[in-house]
Write a protein that binds this DNA or RNA. Structure first.
Lengths: 192, 192
DNA sequence: AAAATTCTGGAACAATTGTTCAAGAATAAC
DNA sequence: GTTATTCTTGAACAATTGTTCCAGAATTTT
């Protein structure tokens, strides 16, 4: 043992996450990351490695946080306790709306961004993204299964597509009215 | 008048389009573009301008081509003549599946890629993307109107979201089986 | 053929890229 | 307090970035 690490590792990767989330992988320079974290290049490299490793770390943390929350939502655990199937789906799609509505945040879903920008070119990132999608799909499938839905799996896949599509529309500048209307009709249709 | 332009302008922007489509805006260097077109930097700059102008040009051409085709499909004109509403929607969503199935092409939809990477940061590109989405939505709305659908507009927005979501899933590595199943259930649900 | 004009390729540019490394600061163990 | 170890900062690095510019090639008009 010797000199202790001065910076908070978790805060650093949160800062890194925000930069990649906002600007994408190629749009982010290592200088952006040192600025955002307030660290020297040496420290960042020593702690996490190169730019790609940093991105993978940030994405992994994002997935672990957001997908876990979604799983709780789908399962009706915690804050989602007592919510109906429809209400849980409503909250899920609401993620895409609230980011715009409440936070004026057009960074979209980091997972979705990674799928578009990097998954086709980087096998490791593809695996991360695929695993995250699988967890979401499984959670949604179980949710639909609660109602004895026979096509639970396909409906789960389709709902994930709707969610991702809404995220894309939000980045493209779709209005809250449009996004809300999509969610509304989606809820009507899914549970006839 | 003096020396004539030696290269084919249309071929050049097609080459440029393919590079941006494959690698994204930030992932593409001007050197990539000169390599792809076979032109010197001077020629490219003289003919089209800087990197951003080149991207906007390539995106505009893509939109004009693809959105026009989609409009014909929705309207049942040309190759789509005689197709039912359901069949036209099937073909539309098929765009996301066939790229993978027939061409093993994971570049996705250039318009969707632009929405994710650039629309939130570049107003001019946002406008292009929004206009394209509007044309698609209008075409779909008219299609649903043929059946006297009262919620044609919202259904159009929702279908666009499904399409974009499928494009994201395809980039993320979703199987053809999954994508096809999504399309199938989407067709069942949309026309009850 | 000469002149005028436009195109072409690539050299040149400063700025930025991702990464490495070394010199010094800070702390734990002795 | 000394030693050993780890951390921190930032200088240094070669490579690449987007862009400009110029010398020469090509073509039309005179």
């Amino acid at each position: 043992m010797a000199r202790l690490r001065e910076f908070d590792e978790a805060k650093a990767i949160t800062a890194v996450q925000n930069v990649f989330w906002e600007k994408g992988y190629e749009g982010t320079s290592y200088a952006d990351l040192t600025t955002a974290t307030g660290l020297g290049k040496g420290s960042l490299y020593a702690a996490f490695g190169n730019k790609r490793a940093l991105y993978i770390k940030a994405l992994s943390v994002y997935i672990e946080q957001e997908v876990s929350l979604a799983e709780l939502l789908f399962a009706g655990i915690g804050p989602a306790n007592g919510l109906s199937t429809s209400e849980r789906v409503q909250h899920f799609l609401g993620l895409a709306i609230e980011a715009i509505e409440k936070r004026d945040d057009r960074r979209g879903c980091f997972l979705c961004n990674a799928s578009v920008e990097l998954a086709p070119h980087d096998g490791e990132i593809e695996d991360l993204v695929t695993a995250a999608h699988d967890r979401l799909t499984k959670g949604l499938t179980a949710l639909f299964d609660e109602n004895g839905d026979e096509k639970s799996r396909v409906k789960a896949d389709r709902l994930l597509a709707v969610y991702l599509g809404m995220r894309v529309l939000a980045k493209a500048g779709s209005s809250i009215a449009t996004l809300s209307a999509i969610r509304e009709i989606e809820l009507e249709h899914s549970f006839l």
